[in-house]
Amino acid sequence: MQVNEYKPLIVAFCCNWCSYAGADLAGNNRLAYPADVKIIRVPCSCRVNPTFILRAFQRGADGVIICGCHPGDCHYTSGNYYTRRRMAALFSMLDFLGIEKERTRLEWVSAAEGAKFAATMNDFVQTVASLGENKRLEDLRCKK
């Protein structure tokens, strides 16, 4: 047994209509994903203001993932298309500042994809764990 194994803190913004239900399905099917993933339910992936993501990092998250309905399937028709542009710009900027690009991710997960949800989270947690603690975006003033 490993003692003091580093466990990253992951924040997952999940759209109510698809990915959040996908997470539910993963739970119902008893598919395991790490408990360190903190899910925040949002009405649509495009509700995620880029400031939310930075705020999560500021308060100690090691990785942030946004999950929404597949393109074309957004409950509000086009929300996730905006999300896609916003996150492309934001993630690219974070990379430009030298912040590890593996700490941010956008995935499309439908309500029927419980297995994909669990697999995505497992993979993301592993990726972030291999990077270690988030130092580059931390803010000691806000870290609890």
């Binding site: 393109p71 074309g72 086009s78 298309y81 905006y82 896609r84 542009r85 916003r86 996150m87 492309a88 710009a89 934001l90 993630f91 690219s92 990379d95 690009k101 593996e102 941010t104 991710r105 956008l106 993979d123 990726t127």
Partner: peptide, 20 residues
């Protein structure tokens, strides 16, 4: 950024993210 097309690239395609 207040516009879109259905064919836009994915944030992951912006840089080489390997097999992630």
């Amino acid at each position: 950024l207040v516009n879109y097309t259905t064919e836009d690239l994915e944030p992951g395609e912006v840089f080489d993210r390997g097999d992630n």
